[in-house]
Design a protein around this nucleic acid. Structure first.
Length: 563
RNA sequence: GUUUACAUAGCUCAGUUGGAUAGAGCGUUUCCCUCCGAAGGAAAAGGCCAUCAGUUCGAAUCUGAUUGUAAACACCA
């Protein structure tokens, strides 16, 4: 909104002088100016003049504009060729009022509403959710909310991992132990899966048997289907419970199994285009490209025993999504380590023409322990999410005496804030170190810091009324910085949307809280006798509060009653 | 081995796509509650942005090489 408005003015001047569009960015040197343009360097090359001269020309021209003094308090050309822009208080306040009054803080509406299918979560139904599952859920849900906020349509699908060898393994384990289906519990599942997974690696015969069960299940064996249904039911209930706790929600609870009916259709398409090749008894799709620097291996569509794999289910799912939703984009939020797989699937889908959607793999980094290796507890297991929630809650309660008396729902909100803020502030595609102490921290750059800031300013606002709009004043540096930061919302939100990286938004939220605290600490409001000043500050704080509240929703952080 | 990422303060991480003097949090050392919530604020110390070369007015950011780390690489997901 702000940059756009300034740019409009500069572009007008730019085209009048024959320079064309002039780019404006937020300042890198806030002590010198609010916004800046570095474009004179670029233009200098084209027009064979010094950057400084071009800057001076532009500045001179812009000063002639009738809106100049309304917008700016100062615009100057500085050696070696920057244009420094300082906004007028009037302009800052006009923009803030627009933010306050317009829907979604005046963020530009999308010209074309597009449909995004988001595939995240993807829990394996053979085992309980562990720490590793938190990232996809949180990152995926947040990306979904950001896309939604930008005005697009989203369809979230959990895409349960329920079709592969892991099911065969668990069924084998259940039968071996003679557990009656009606007695089967979640604990059984979490015990059986790792054991069977280990045994399959050591014992070729058991592995083959599990593979056979898997294949028969895929072919519709009613006997195994009963097992599948029971496992599915047990797991889904538990998964849902945990996702509910995290405030992560899906429009569809499809699984790989639901793609089963579509796989033959994909196979038909593949056959009609002669894309399925026999290779060592398996059916594969050649996905190599002439431009490849390195040979990329073919996608295995069907194993030599006739069973399907996750490449086939992914293609089946893709087909299904195309038919059901006709999406513009399909986003896969999974571990970065799967990038080769998705490259293969995307290419195979493109070749076969089963979808028109743009496909993006939004990989995220691995969660590592303090030693930099994939996270494990001391016993060698990956900790369950349930336990993590409990641990964080315990640590939080121990921080302050009266935390014990906090309501159940407030505690839950704070645990969520702690975890989500800790996770989402990391750049999406980097590995990160999971440190339980860092993840339970309540001081510094944390969820509680934001919540605390929010609650403090709302305590001021609670018994006060804002009677009129902003005056033309800005009163001091801290005040000014906060107002400018608020105006920066659109840029950061847009960036988070375009890059599909929530951490840009998280960082913005933190900055707002930071500037708010500085302002808060140094300026008392309630005792002010100057009614206009008081009203102005209440206005700014009220807008700050709204911005924080709305943006926190996009990262699934709710505000407790008291903390 | 091949390919792809990554390397920024003691630790954990940002760095808005090439701009001016490198940014946080934790930890360390000082201050600040008779005053809207101290889970806060103010300040200090801490950096050869892995190394070397190149591209250019300008490089943490782009290119190449080197070193190191991680991951993926045909019937697991």
């Amino acid at each position: 909104m702000v940059i756009e408005t300034i740019k409009e003015l500069f572009n007008k001047v730019g085209s009048r002088l024959g320079y064309g569009e002039i780019n404006i960015i937020t300042s890198n040197r806030p002590e010198l100016c609010d916004y800046q343009s570095d474009d004179c360097f670029r233009l200098a090359k084209i027009h064979h003049k010094s950057p400084l001269m071009i800057g001076e020309e532009i500045v001179e021209e812009i000063k002639k504009d009738e809106n100049f003094s309304l917008y700016f308090s100062e615009v100057s050309s500085v050696a070696p060729g920057f244009i420094n822009i300082t906004l007028s208080s009037t302009f800052i306040n006009k923009m803030l009022e627009r933010m306050n009054n317009e829907e979604k803080f005046g963020i530009k509406k999308t010209e074309k509403v597009e449909t995004f299918v988001l595939d995240y979560g993807g829990p394996n139904i053979a085992k309980p959710l562990h720490v590793g599952h938190m990232r996809t859920a949180i990152v995926g849900e947040s990306i979904k909310r950001i896309i939604n906020y930008m005005g697009h349509k989203t369809i979230a699908d959990v895409h349960l991992g329920d079709f592969g060898l892991q099911i065969g393994q668990v069924i084998y384990g259940i039968r071996e132990r003679n557990i009656a289906l009606e007695d089967l519990t979640l604990d059984d599942l979490s015990e059986i899966y790792p054991i069977m997974s280990g045994r399959c690696k050591e014992d070729e015969e058991i592995k083959e048997e599990c593979a056979r069960i898997t294949k028969e299940l895929q072919e519709g064996s009613t006997e195994y289907l009963d097992y599948y249904k029971k496992i599915h039911e047990l797991s889904k209930g538990d998964i849902k419970r945990i996702y509910d706790y995290l405030d992560v929600h899906f429009d569809y609870w499809y699984g790989e199994m639901d793609a089963r009916d579509y796989i033959p259709k994909v196979e038909e398409v593949l056959n009609s285009k002669n894309l399925l090749i026999d290779s060592e008894g398996a059916k594969v799709i050649d996905v190599s490209d002439e431009a490849d620097t390195k040979e990329i291996p073919p996608l295995i569509f069907r194993k030599s025993n006739g069973a399907y794999l996750y490449g086939s289910t992914d293609m089946g799912t893709l087909y299904q999504r195309e038919v059901d939703f006709n999406p513009d984009y399909i986003l896969y939020i999974t571990d970065l380590r799967q990038s080769l797989h998705f490259k293969q699937v995307f290419r195979a889908s493109l070749k076969s023409g089963i979808t028109n959607a743009k496909l993006e793999h939004l990989g995220y980094g691995t969660i590592n322990g303090l030693d930099g290796k994939p996270y494990k507890t001391r016993s060698g297991h990956t900790p369950k999410l349930d336990d993590l929630f409990k641990d964080v809650e315990q640590i939080f309660i121990s921080k302050k005496e009266d935390n014990k008396d906090m309501s159940e729902s407030d505690r839950k909100k704070i645990v969520n804030a702690i975890l989500k803020f800790a996770d989402l502030q990391n750049s999406r595609e980097k590995d990160y170190i999971f440190d339980i102490n860092k993840f339970s921290s309540v001081v510094g750059k944390t969820g509680p810091y934001i919540l605390y800031t929010y609650l403090r300013i709302n305590k001021i606002l609670k018994n006060e009324n804002i009677i009129h709009n902003l005056s033309n004043n800005v009163y001091n540096e801290e005040d000014r910085k906060l107002r400018l930061k608020l105006l920066d919302l659109e840029k950061n939100l847009t960036l988070a949307f375009k890059e599909r990286k929530p951490h840009y938004l998280v960082d913005y939220i933190y900055q707002v809280a930071l500037f708010t605290n500085t302002f808060y600490q140094n300026n008392h409001i309630l005792g002010l006798e100057d009614e206009i000043k008081k009203n102005d500050w209440l206005y700014v704080l009220s807008l700050t509060s709204k911005v924080l509240e709305e943006m926190l929703k996009l990262i699934m952080i709710e505000i407790p009653e008291y903390m």
